[in-house]
């Protein structure tokens, strides 16, 4: 099937979502996603950050779709034409979604351990207005202790359900879920049972914000002062490959995470032994420094990257690329 996204045509399998078709092209035109996770079945459709405009439904029915659609849940049709950054309507809507997500999200980035690798922070920087228009008290929760390895900050949660899907699909038993409904929805463990499973640590990696963070790394350092290094070890666990990223500060490994791809999704889920217990260089075989996106604050003072080829045949996209670049690098 042939789809055109921001004027760039791509051939994809039937049944692919617009978001995945855009990811096959790559670059600026990929819609951001806060809740969709390609490795988790059933994820997506909750945060609405991936909204796109479908200006031509398909070859058979060329009418445009009446409203913006969530690209992670909409499958492509043959001859579909999609506008992402070339449509001012999409940018406007996305700005609204970011503002909406930030209504209840506390602005405690200086305290939060996720700062620097937080997707909501990136989105807020890209689109968000400087001030919030919300005048009421933000939603607050009683603190729930979910074990000595994982820290839950319910106030920061944007209810993407990724961690619930992870626990359901990656670990054998799911001990936590979403309680209550609507604005009162809350991630918690039933009767405060601790999340202790071989793969429970992965919910830290899938969390797009700082709601679930590593307790062993809590307040140890800021991510941009640490040095990420790719490493591996032979893990006994049959489902864990033992391929991780070590975050060094000086000589010490202060955090171990799974390797993440350009969209912030982990490549392979890792077990809790690798994540929490192996924090010595002697436990690992170092493969080399980790490539960090030049947009990320972690790469500050590093200057190696190869930019994507520029599409010069589409002036609308070139203009939109320029605007996207300005949004990315406003300061």
């Amino acid at each position: 099937m042939k789809v055109t996204i921001d004027g760039i045509p791509v051939e994809v399998e039937p049944g692919t979502s617009i978001l995945n078709a855009a990811r096959q092209i790559g670059g600026d035109i990929v819609p951001p996603a806060m809740c969709y996770y390609s490795k988790l079945e059933g994820s997506g459709g909750k945060c609405r950050t991936c909204l796109v405009q479908v200006s031509k439904g398909s070859e058979k029915d060329p009418r445009p779709m009446p409203k913006l659609v969530a690209s992670c849940r909409t499958t492509v049709m043959d001859g579909m034409e999609v506008k992402n950054i070339t449509s001012p309507e999409v940018i406007e809507a996305r700005k609204g979604v970011v503002e909406m997500l930030l209504i209840n999200h506390p602005l405690d980035c200086p305290v939060c351990d996720q700062a620097g690798e937080c997707h909501l922070q990136d989105l807020g920087f890209e689109h968000g207005a400087v001030k919030t228009r919300y005048e009421f008290d933000r939603r607050t929760f009683d603190k729930v202790d979910i074990g000595d390895k994982i820290q839950l900050h319910m106030t920061r949660c944007i209810l993407c359900y990724r961690c619930v899907f992870t626990a359901d699909q990656i670990t054998n038993t799911r001990l936590h879920g979403i309680l209550n409904r609507g604005d009162h929805s809350e991630i918690s463990t039933y009767i405060s049972k601790a999340v202790d499973n071989d793969f429970s640590g992965n919910i830290i990696d899938v969390c797009p914000v700082g709601a679930l963070t590593d307790k062993t790394f809590r307040f140890k350092n800021r991510v941009w002062f640490t040095k990420p290094v790719e490493a591996r070890r032979d893990c006994d666990h049959e489902k864990c490959k033992g391929e991780v990223t070590l975050w060094y500060k000086g000589e010490d490994v202060i955090r171990v995470t799974a390797r993440k791809d350009v969209y912030g999704e982990v490549e392979d889920f890792i077990c809790n032994t690798c994540r929490f217990d192996k924090k010595k260089t002697a436990d690992w075989v170092i493969e080399g420094p980790r490539k960090v996106s030049h947009k990320s604050v972690i790469s500050s003072n590093h200057y190696e990257f190869t930019p994507l080829p520029v599409v010069k045949t589409n002036p609308v996209l070139m203009e939109a690329n320029k605007e996207q670049f300005e949004r990315d690098t406003r300061l």
Binding site: P110, V111, F219, R222, W224, F225, V297
Partner: peptide, 9 residues
């Protein structure tokens, strides 16, 4: 001060 590290950055 909340030790956010932005001054050091």
């Amino acid at each position: 001060c909340t030790a956010c590290g932005l001054c050091a950055l």
